[in-house]
């Protein structure tokens, strides 16, 4: 978020921060693959329930329904996808800040504050869904200690949630800068790297949604 060192010579003509964020994203691929691999390795190996897709009756005769709530998670998946759309519009708004805007539609599209707010709110909504999901699971008898599914599920989705949280804090910081001095084309790179991070967190969720929630 510091002033770019654009006046220094670079061999590719690209900004160093954008190269670094892509290298970071490459690294994050391995991080999430380790988590997803472990989830899949332990899939179906839990000795006791609750299970993600199957009914479980314990020796005491208590019955646990399949624990995953597909309708709620589908909604939160949609919310996160839409936050990516808002993010990409926020970036475009910052990049095109200096272009003249005549119509009301152009002004709406050109408002970086609106789209940053939108992204942050949709991200927070996603986190709200996740908080609801976690607490309801605990009420239904699944905690991080219950079984292999609980350990790997909460750790995987919790890591993703932590990434979303960091992203929301990042977005709020950008918003604060926007309110203090306005974000213009010179800041586009700062918004761009935040956006790359945000979209990456979104694509990770795309994988998690399929692998954890939909595949039985």
């Amino acid at each position: 978020m510091t002033a770019p060192a654009a006046h220094h010579y670079t061999s590719t003509g690209l900004d160093s921060r954008k190269i670094a964020i892509w290298a970071f994203i490459g690294s994050e691929c391995m991080l999430f693959v380790s988590l997803i691999s472990t989830y899949l390795i332990y899939k179906g190996r839990s000795l006791v329930g609750p299970f993600p897709h199957d009914v479980y009756t314990n020796p005491a005769g208590e019955t646990f329904n399949p624990i995953l709530n597909i309708p709620v998670t589908s909604a939160s998946t949609f919310v996160l996808l839409m936050s990516s759309l808002a993010m990409v519009l926020a970036l475009a708004a910052v990049q095109n800040k200096d272009l003249p805007k005549h119509t009301r539609g152009e002004r709406v599209l050109g408002s970086s504050k609106l789209w940053l707010w939108m992204t942050a709110l949709l991200g927070t909504t996603f986190l709200g869904f996740q908080a609801y999901e976690f607490t309801s699971f605990v009420h239904e008898g699944l905690s991080i200690r219950t079984n292999l599914f609980g350990s790997s599920f909460f750790t995987l989705t919790g890591f993703h949630g932590a990434h979303v949280t960091a992203g929301v804090i990042w977005l709020v910081t950008l918003l604060a800068i926007d309110y203090r001095r306005g974000l213009g084309p010179n800041d586009a790179l700062n918004v761009d790297i935040a956006a790359l991070y945000w979209h990456f967190v979104d694509v990770v969720w795309i994988v998690i949604f399929t692998v954890v929630y939909l595949l039985k």
């Binding site: 190269i19 892509w22 290298a23 994203i25 490459g26 690294s27 691929c29 391995m30 693959v33 691999s37």
Partner: peptide, 13 residues
């Protein structure tokens, strides 16, 4: 920078 690591990650998985 993205597809290289993604490929190694996928193969590892």
């Amino acid at each position: 920078l993205f597809t290289g690591p993604l490929l190694i990650a996928a193969l590892t998985l």
